[in-house]
Simulated assay, not measured.
Amino acid sequence: MFRRLIKDKSVRESIASASVVGLNLVSATFVGLFIGWWLDRWLDTKPWLLLTFLVLGIVAGFKNVMVEVKKIQKADASHQDDDGGDDEKS
């Protein structure tokens, strides 16, 4: 159904990349939280490792978001170059 609505392949790829951005941030945060929680239980260091790995997970999530945004910007710039400039019609 959506394939018929969006015929341009580059637009579909940009939408797919943009949808991954939020998922990257949330998943990295939860992975850091889980690792910290598990290490705290194992080493009995509550709550220090949980907090440390939570912060590391958030930082990794933002790093992944920045990488995805740069990819989207690069793809958009190359798409505009292929079209010959601005997306606006005169």
Rank of each mutant, 00 (worst) to 15 (best):
G32T: 03
S10F: 06
L5P: 02
K9V: 05
V65D: 04
L56I: 10
I35H: 06
V69R: 10
L39A: 07
G84R: 05
D76W: 09
N24D: 03
W37K: 15
F62G: 04
K46Y: 06
E68H: 09
K63N: 07
S14G: 10
G22K: 02
K74T: 07
S10D: 14
I15M: 13
I72V: 07
K74G: 04
V55Q: 03
L49Q: 14
M66L: 12
V26W: 02
W48V: 11
K70E: 13
E13G: 04
I6K: 04
G61K: 02
L50T: 15
T45M: 09
K46E: 07
E13W: 04
D44Q: 13
L50R: 07
A16E: 08
D40R: 00
S78V: 09
A28C: 06
A75T: 14
V69D: 07
S78Y: 07
A60E: 08
V69M: 12
V21W: 03
L25D: 02
W42Y: 14
Q80N: 07
L25I: 04
D76P: 03
R4Q: 11
V59H: 05
G32A: 00
Q80R: 15
F30W: 00
G32P: 02
G57Y: 00
L39Y: 14
D76Y: 11
K7T: 14
R12Q: 02
G32F: 00
A28S: 07
D82H: 12
K89W: 13
D44G: 06
D87R: 15
A16L: 10
V21P: 00
L49P: 01
G36E: 01
A77G: 12
G85S: 12
A77L: 12
S10L: 11
G61Q: 01
S17P: 00
L33G: 12
D81L: 12
V67S: 03
Q80T: 04
T29D: 02
G22Y: 00
D86C: 14
S19I: 08
D40M: 00
L23F: 08
W38L: 11
T52E: 05
D44C: 05
K7D: 03
P47Y: 08
F53R: 03
D76K: 15
G32H: 00
D81S: 15
W48A: 10
